[in-house]
Design a protein around this nucleic acid. Structure first.
Lengths: 349, 349
DNA sequence: CACGAGGTGGAGAGCGCTCTCCGGCGTCGC
DNA sequence: GCGACGCCGGAGAGCGCTCTCCACCTCGTG
C-alpha cells in the first residue's frame, strides 16, 4: 500500500493523516470531530487515511486546546482512620455501597466516552490533591461520596469554583448540587410495614448521628411510628458496619427483651442484627421482624431481608448527569435531586 | 501585593510565574521539577511567585511533551452477560474481590501521585475502547483483571505494544507480566487442614472450569487429598457466586449425605454453602467442616470461615509496581510474580 | 595571567491539536 | 450579466509545557 512512512517514529499524527489524504490538518480535524460540512469524497479520503495510518488523536494535545479532558474524578471522601484499623482504601472499596455507586457512574459515563478516575480523600493532604488534580485540568469535575457528615472537601471544591456533585445533602448547607434520597419517606415505609404486620413493640438501630442521612432515617422512622400511635421508639446508634448491627441488636434485646420489630438503618447492620438474633434464638420474622435499608446486601441474608430500596445506580447516574451539565455550562444552576425509595418485601418482615 | 494581573483570564501559567519571579519559564520549570541546580535565592523567589499566583501546572501541556500521563487504566474485563441479568458494571463492582484489588492498587499508586481510571471491557467494542484509550495517551498502561479465562483483551494489549499487567496467569500463554497466587499450594493447605481435623469424606465446590485459578485450586486440592490417601474427591462446579455455592452444597449433600468436610473454591460460594448447611440442619464445623478461599467475606459468615487467604492488596500493589516499571522502561522484562497463600483458621474448620 | 571546565540561567523550538480567519469558487437574485 | 452571498478548504496562530542548546560567569589550574 502506501510506502509513505508516516513519521520517522512514534504514533501517527494529524499531520500524517492529512498528508496521506492530500488535505490540510484542519480538514482532517473537521472530519474527525464532525464539525462543519466537509465534501463527501474528501471525508472518505480522510477516513481511508485514518484507517491506513491507524491514527488515534492524542488526548493531551486535544485537551490542551479544548480545556476538557473527558474524565471525571470519582472521589470517596471520609475521615482517615483515627483508630488505626485497616487503611481507608481497603475498607471503602469493600463496601457494596461504593460498588453500586461506582457501577451506576460507570454505566452512565461509559456510553459517553468518559471515564471516572478513582480518588480517595481522607486527610487534608489528599483533599488538596483532589483540588489540585482538578485544577491541573486532569478531570472536568468531581463526583464526591462522603462517608461522614462534616466533610470539608465539598466546600474546598465550591471555593475553588470546580464543578462537583455530591452524593447526599451536605451536613451544612453550601451551594453545591447533590443527589439524595427521601430518607424520611423511606423510613416511613418501614414503619408502615412493621405496623401493618402487627408489630407492637418496635425499636431501631440507627446510623451515626453525624451523618444527615442517618438522622433523617431515624427521625423519619420515629415520626412515622408516632403517627401510628407509638410515640416512643427505643434506638441504639450504629456505624453502618455489620459488627455494630450485631452489637446493637444484642443491646436492644437485652434492654427491651420483648420487642417484635426492628428497623435497621442499613442492610449491612441488618445483616449483623440477623446474626445476633439467630445467636439469641429468636426467629425472624416470627418472633421479631427486621427491615433494612439500601437493598445492598439483602439477598445474601438469612432470611432474605425486607428492605427499603435506595435506587443507587440511578442516583449515581443522576450525579454524573448533573456533573456533566455543570462542566459543560459553568452557569448551570445548582440543583438537588431527591429520589424516592421503595419497599422491597422479602422474608424478614 | 502584586498588582500585576497575571493573565487577562483563566488559570496562571508558567509564564505568569516566571514574569512575577523575574526569571524565565525554563527556570520555573526546573524548580518545579527539581531538575538541575537552581540558585537557592532564585528557587525561593520562584516558590514565592508560585504561592502568590496559586499556580498549578497544566497536566495536558505537560503530558503533551513528556508523553506520560500519571494515570493508569484499571480495567475489569469479562464476558458481557449473555443471559441478560444485571449489567456487567453492577455485578463487578459489587464483588468484594474487585473492591480489594482496587484498594490495593490505590494504596500503592496514591503515594506516587498516580490515579487509576476505572474501565470495563465486556465486548469487542469496549475492548477496543480500552486499547484506544491507551493509544491516545490517556493512561500509561493497564492493570487488567479478567473475570473469565479466555479473555481476548490481554492479547490485544500485547499486540499493540501497550504496557499491561494482568491479575492471574492468562489461560493461554502470551508474553505479558502478571501476578498470581500459588493456588495449588493454597488448596493443599485446605486439604491438610481438613485431614488434620479428622475429616474422612471430603468434597469440594470448585470455580468455573474455564478459569485457570479454579482449575488449579481443584486439581491442587485433589492432588493433596490423594497424597493423604483419598484418591477420589467428589466435586461440583460453581461460578464463584454465592447462589452457586448454596446450590452446590445442596447437590453435594444430596449425592453424598455423609461428607464431613468441604473445600469451597472461594468465600462467596462458601457463604452460600454455609447457608445451605444451615437450612439442611448440619452443624458447622461439628457435622461438617468448611474451608473457603480468598479471605474476602470470611468474617461476615456464621460461623466465621476458616479460609485460605489470598493477599489481594499485596498482589494488586505488585501489579501496579510492575506496570510502572513497564511504563518507565519499555524493555523491562516480562515478569510473573506468584504469591504465597496462608491458611486463616477461624471457626468453620 | 590565560585558558578550560563546570555550573547556571535564558532563548526558542517544538509536542499535536483546535479554531479563527481568509480566500476561492459556485450560485442566486436583480 | 454582474455583484453579493454562502460554502468549504487551507493557513497559521496559539494552548502551556519541557528540554536542548547556548551564553555567561566563576573558579581552578598550569
Amino acid at each position: 500500500m502506501s510506502t509513505d512512512l508516516p513519521h520517522t517514529s512514534g504514533a501517527p499524527t494529524l499531520e500524517d493523516v492529512a498528508r496521506l489524504a492530500g488535505v490540510s490538518r484542519a480538514t482532517v480535524s473537521r472530519v474527525i470531530n464532525g464539525i462543519r460540512n466537509v465534501a463527501p469524497d474528501i471525508q472518505e479520503a480522510v477516513h481511508r487515511a485514518i484507517a491506513a495510518t491507524g491514527y488515534v488523536p492524542n488526548r493531551a494535545a486535544r485537551s490542551l486546546v479544548t480545556r476538557r479532558t473527558g474524565a471525571v474524578a470519582l472521589v470517596v471522601s471520609g475521615a482517615g482512620d483515627a483508630e488505626g484499623g485497616e487503611p481507608f482504601e481497603s475498607r471503602v472499596f469493600a463496601d457494596p455501597f461504593f460498588g453500586r455507586v461506582a457501577g451506576g457512574v460507570v454505566g452512565y459515563l461509559r456510553p459517553r466516552g468518559i471515564h471516572p478516575v478513582l480518588m480517595l480523600a481522607d486527610s487534608a493532604q489528599t483533599r488538596d490533591d483532589v483540588v489540585s488534580f482538578l485544577r491541573q485540568g486532569s478531570a472536568d469535575g468531581a463526583l464526591v461520596v462522603s462517608t461522614h457528615g462534616e466533610d470539608p472537601l465539598p466546600k474546598l471544591l465550591v471555593d475553588a469554583g470546580l464543578p462537583a456533585v455530591l452524593w447526599a445533602r451536605p451536613a451544612r448547607p453550601i451551594p453545591i448540587s447533590y443527589v439524595d434520597l427521601a430518607h424520611r419517606a423511606g423510613a416511613a415505609l418501614a414503619a408502615d410495614r412493621l405496623v401493618a404486620r402487627g408489630c407492637r413493640r418496635v425499636a431501631t438501630i440507627s446510623g451515626p448521628f453525624d451523618v444527615p442521612a442517618a438522622q433523617d432515617r431515624l427521625s423519619g422512622f420515629q415520626e412515622a411510628m408516632a403517627g401510628h400511635g407509638h410515640p416512643y421508639v427505643p434506638a441504639v446508634e450504629g456505624d453502618f458496619m455489620p459488627a455494630s448491627g450485631e452489637a446493637g441488636m444484642h443491646r436492644l434485646i437485652k434492654e427491651h427483651p420483648d420487642i417484635d420489630g426492628v428497623f435497621v438503618a442499613n442492610d449491612l447492620m441488618a445483616q449483623g442484627a440477623l446474626l445476633a438474633l439467630r445467636d439469641l434464638g429468636r426467629r425472624v420474622p416470627e418472633d421479631i421482624a427486621v427491615i433494612g435499608f439500601d437493598d445492598s446486601a439483602a439477598v445474601t441474608c438469612r432470611p432474605p431481608l425486607t428492605t427499603v430500596r435506595q435506587p443507587m445506580e440511578d442516583m449515581a447516574a443522576e450525579m454524573a448527569r448533573l456533573l456533566l451539565a455543570h462542566a459543560a455550562d459553568p452557569d448551570f444552576q445548582v440543583t438537588s435531586v431527591i429520589m424516592r425509595p421503595t419497599l422491597v418485601v422479602r422474608e424478614s418482615a
